[in-house]
């Protein structure tokens, strides 16, 4: 099976990277995985034809849930934090999804943005959570095993890789079968879906929930990488980044979000180093070029090469 082979190869590569590369690269790889998972969730949602401009909401919830465990409850286990991040986000998505699943198009996009900005507002105002500065978190064990200082991040990267690969495989499986076709059906023609006896609302709701949980997982992973959370995680620029990466990669492959997240992080690092005041502009130009020349995302390049080979 091709998917399993890719999954194993990715795991091996990421594990090697975790064990052998310098700390800064480990950090970058964690961020890349975190964002890749969030964006993959966004692709799940996009299958039903909906774009959320507010995934920062769940990214932030995941990050803060992980951080609060360490800070407030003194739970310092990374595995617990990751699961808690996903669970907290899923819980809120299950609630808000009841409302949002009834909206479409720009209304859905704007409403999701609105909710993320509400959380941003609450976090900024909340002195107990460090308001705009946020606060630090520390994870020292993984599944109960204590980790020596210095190797923590390396272990967390491996853990993140395992989580990401499992999630990606699940999404892959889900979309190859009926659920994927149904989601496309909802995007193409909701009337027909209803007249076949299925509920477009339910399909959107479930996909929204999946996307929320994945964004929460990504948020928790990012929090582990950075060791710090602040309201910026829920800000609209963060949400915009996810949409940017989704468009950059395109929707054709489960791998695209991860590849695109890597390119994005690399681009940003380079751009902010050499043109600190211009990096947003260079991202804007990159976006423009992609929409004009590769409307289906960078993945079209790989497809084209495969076809001509």
């Amino acid at each position: 099976m091709k998917a399993a082979a890719v999954a194993i190869a990715s795991l091996v590569a990421l594990t090697a990277l975790a064990l052998l590369s310098p700390q800064w690269l480990v950090f970058m790889a964690m961020l890349m995985l975190a964002k890749g998972v969030v964006v993959l969730g966004l692709l799940v949602l996009m299958r039903t034809g909906l774009v959320s401009f507010g995934q920062g909401l769940y990214f932030g919830i995941g990050a803060y849930a992980a951080a609060l465990l360490s800070h407030g409850l003194h739970v310092a286990d990374a595995a617990v934090m990751l699961l808690a991040g996903a669970a907290a986000a899923a819980l809120i998505a299950a609630l808000l999804g009841l409302l949002l699943a009834g909206y479409r198009d720009i209304f859905f996009a704007m409403l999701s943005l609105a909710f993320s900005m509400i959380l941003y507002g609450l976090l900024v105002k909340s002195a107990a959570l460090g308001s705009t500065d946020g606060f630090n978190l520390h994870a020292r064990t993984f599944f109960g095993v204590a980790l020596a200082p210095g190797v923590e991040r390396r272990v967390f990267l491996i853990a993140g890789a395992v989580f990401a690969v499992v999630v990606a495989l699940l999404v892959h499986r889900l979309f190859r079968g009926h659920w994927g076709r149904l989601a496309t059906g909802v995007r193409d023609n909701e009337l027909r879906v209803s007249y076949l006896g299925a509920s477009p609302y339910r399909a959107v709701y479930v996909n929204y929930l999946i996307a929320g949980a994945m964004a929460g997982l990504g948020g928790a992973l990012a929090a582990l990488a950075v060791g710090h959370v602040d309201p910026e995680t829920t800000y609209w620029t963060t949400s915009g980044e996810f949409v940017f990466i989704a468009i950059l990669g395109g929707t054709q492959s489960i791998l695209a979000p991860f590849v695109a997240a890597t390119i994005f992080e690399a681009l940003r690092t380079v751009a902010s180093q050499y043109a600190p005041n211009l990096w947003q502009m260079s991202l804007g130009l990159a976006m423009l070029a992609i929409i004009m020349f590769l409307p289906a995302g960078l993945w079209t390049l790989a497809e084209r090469r495969r076809r001509s080979a």
Binding site: H178, L182, D188, N189, L191, R192, L196
Partner: peptide, 19 residues
């Protein structure tokens, strides 16, 4: 009223799976 981006076969598969 069809799912235009799916193949003819996939259209029917969606219908049969829902049924």
């Amino acid at each position: 009223q069809l799912f235009n981006s799916l193949s003819v076969r996939e259209n029917l598969l969606v219908a049969e799976s829902i049924a």
